[in-house]
Each structure stands twice: as structure tokens, then as C-alpha cells.
Computed example of a mutant assay.
Amino acid sequence: MDDTDIDPIRDYLQFREDGALGIRPLGENSLEHYETILRRMDLGLQAGILGSTTDEIRAWICRPGRSASTRSNYIAIVRGYVRWAVAERWIDYDTTVRLPNIPTPPGRPKPWPEEALADIRARAAAPWALAIDLSSYGGLRCIEISRLDREHVTSRVTRLWGKGGKYRDVPTHPYIWERVESMPAGPLMVGARTKMRMTPNSISVGVRAHLKTLGYPGFHNHMGRHRFGTRAYQTSGHDIRAVQELLGHSSIATSQRYVDVAEGALASAVAGL
């Protein structure tokens, strides 16, 4: 075998995609994220990940400016990769055993404000306007937006292919139907130059860049999903199970992280005691 064919990161990602040995397979979006982090780390370490010491790996992960959640995520990713490499005899011992376990507080929901959404909808250009509506009024993830075809959307319901290969039906909001009704069959999100289905990452990056041009730096499409979860919770009479079904979460605890509770609601709850 030519040395250029040796790529343990590629082999590990294939292992994770296949879901071998009973390990939950990674979806397309997660695989892309894992590869981005592992490739970046492998290039950033002089001897690569598998040739570096624990201290060198820790120093790269714990660079100043990285949040606790980012560091925790990087440690989890590299641990899985190195443990696989030990099992496959790429290396002799696990250099990630002594990496710290970094506690991370649960993230707060970040729905975009309603007035900001109204302004964005009034000025957003295609195809980003559709992606913004799909997240804000349908609760779609970028991977679900990428997979969505015109045939999956009716005036009544939208059929989604979500994480883990699971399908779910979400009622179609009139704003979404208004944008989709006259579109041709096939993928709803198509690259302007490639004329091909857009990837989840290209949708995420494209929406973020477009929002920045509209005067909303730091805004991203997942904020629409948080907005959808929050509004669904409010309008359903605080039915968290309904929110769970609409967002496609396997755990109610995950859905709770998508629901923003207004300060006024907290004050009313205490005042009513």
C-alpha cells in the first residue's frame, strides 16, 4: 500500500459511520464536524494526534479563548479517535486518559427576537430566506433543510428526514408554504453555481454570512429552531411533549434546552403563589 493511502482519520470516520461494534453511527452533519476538528488538530500538532503526548494534545485543545463547551467537545472527539487507534493498533497506549473532564453548564436557548426575525424576513434574499423560514416556522435543523425536497412539503404537512435516519411529520406553516408552493420538484436548497443540493454546512455558513450582511453578526440559523421551540411551547399551553415531537428530540431534557422562558413569566409564576 502506498503511504499516501494511509489515513487513520478516514478509517475512523468510516468506522463511526458504519456504527460497528454496537456504537451509535454518526449522521452526516456529525461526521463532517468530527472530520473538521480531527483534521485541524492533526495539522496543528507537530507530530499529529497519534504521535503527540497528552500534554501536547491538552495544550492544543485548551488554547486561550476557547470556551469550556468547545474544549469539552474537542476532548470527547479526540478521545474516541485515540481509543479506536489503540484498539486498531495504530498506537500502543491511550494518550487521552489523563485529559481533563471539563464541566459545562447547560446552554441557554438563543431564539432570535421577534422584531429581528420580522426585519430579517422582510430583507432576506433567496435561497437564505427559505432556510430561515424553515428553521423559524418549522423547527428544521440544517441537515433536515439540506435533505428536504419539494415533494416532501404539502400545504398541510412537511415530511422530515432527521438525525439518525428518523422521519417525522411537522405541520406546514403558511409562511413556508407560501415560499415553497410554486417551486419545482427536487431539492429546495440548491447552490447557485453548482445547481446541486446544498450540504448542511453550506446552508449553515451561507445563512450566517447573509445575516451578517443584513446587520445581524453572530446570528445563525439554529436560532430559528430555538425560536420555533420557544413559540411552540408558549402556544401549546406549555406542552413540552408536543415540543419534543415537533423538534424530533429523543429526550424531553433536550427539548427543555430549546425553550426560552421570559422573565415576565417567571415573575407571574412567583406572584401567583
Score class of each variant (00 low, 15 high):
A20K: 14
L21W: 10
N221M: 07
T158H: 02
M196F: 06
G65Q: 04
D2G: 12
I9H: 05
V180Y: 00
T154C: 04
Y34M: 08
T172D: 05
T199F: 07
P217W: 07
P105C: 06
M189E: 08
L21G: 09
T154N: 05
R168M: 06
M1I: 09
G186T: 09
N101M: 12
G44I: 10
I75S: 10
R150A: 14
A185L: 11
A271E: 08
I23R: 15
T213Y: 02
R98W: 09
V97K: 13
C62A: 15
T95R: 08
R141W: 05
H152D: 15
A185H: 02
E114F: 02
N221T: 10
T213H: 08
P8D: 02
T254Q: 04
H152L: 04
P25N: 12
R168P: 13
I240W: 03
L26C: 15
L50C: 03
G51R: 03
L273Y: 11
T54D: 05
A129F: 05
R159K: 12
P25W: 03
R193A: 14
L266K: 15
R98H: 11
I102Y: 07
W60D: 15
R89L: 07
I61G: 03
R66H: 07
I252A: 14
E35Q: 13
R10F: 05
A129H: 15
S30T: 14
